[in-house]
Amino acid sequence: MSDWKKNIETLYFQDNGVIPNHPTLPVLLYKNVWAEEALHAESLLNRHGWGNSWLNGVFNYHHYHSNAHEALAVVSGFVKLILGGEHGQKVYLQTGDVVVLPAGTGHKRLEASADFRIAGAYPGGMSYNTRTGEENDRAKALQEIQEVPIPDTDPVYGQDGPLMEIWSGKKP
């Protein structure tokens, strides 16, 4: 079994009428993959072809990006997020964890440690929007989600990572 297969979780979310989530692609949760390298998470994401990066936190309101997938890597501290919208799933992330959110996936910070910092990046350095589930954005958002291509690389493992297998429909 590939080493990465032991440390990855897939989470599927359905459209809840406000937050569309992605109709087919799961969230990928990589636990403790960069424990030693967490301080360099932003440059590691960039090295694997995920750019337009930043270092900051996560908004404390439900939001999603309809025109780009997003990788979030915890640089320091911990955060509890809710994914998928108001009645989604709570996840706990700590230093060294990475989560990849397919376009349309709702996310919100519920709590975080004082030292929490996270790096975010997008495949190929794509520009991203921020949507909050406004009714007048919905039709455009649903169309944009369908048009976002599968990335060329996995943000953690590069060319041969789990994203390439899982998101292309192959079983890991």
Rank of each mutant, 00 (worst) to 15 (best):
E111F: 00
I118S: 00
N16V: 02
S43G: 00
G133S: 07
Y122A: 04
P162K: 08
V100T: 12
I118G: 02
A38S: 15
V91A: 03
L55Y: 02
E70R: 11
P149D: 01
L11D: 03
Q143Y: 02
K170V: 11
S168W: 08
R47M: 07
P23C: 13
D154H: 09
L72Y: 13
G161D: 10
R109M: 10
G120E: 03
H107I: 01
P149H: 00
H65S: 09
K171H: 14
P151G: 08
A35G: 04
G57I: 00
K170Y: 13
Q143L: 10
F13S: 11
H40M: 09
D15N: 15
G169A: 13
F116I: 05
E134A: 14
S53A: 15
P123T: 10
N52L: 02
E135K: 08
G124E: 04
L11F: 09
E86S: 15
S66C: 11
R131T: 10
K171S: 07
S127Q: 11
H40W: 05
D154F: 13
K90R: 12
Y157I: 02
M164C: 09
D3K: 08
P20Q: 15
G51R: 09
T132E: 14
G124F: 04
V58T: 13
L81T: 02
L81G: 06
G169T: 12
A71S: 13
N16C: 11
Y128I: 01
L93D: 00
A103Y: 10
G88M: 01
P102G: 14
N7F: 05
S53V: 03
F13L: 15
G85Q: 03
S76C: 01
V58A: 03
H65F: 06
L28S: 09
P20Y: 10
G85R: 06
G120Q: 00
W167R: 14
N46E: 14
I150M: 13
E144F: 08
G49S: 08
G51V: 05
E9W: 04
G85A: 11
L72I: 11
P26V: 11
H69L: 04
W54Y: 13
Q143N: 06
I8Y: 06
V148F: 03
N129R: 14
P123G: 08
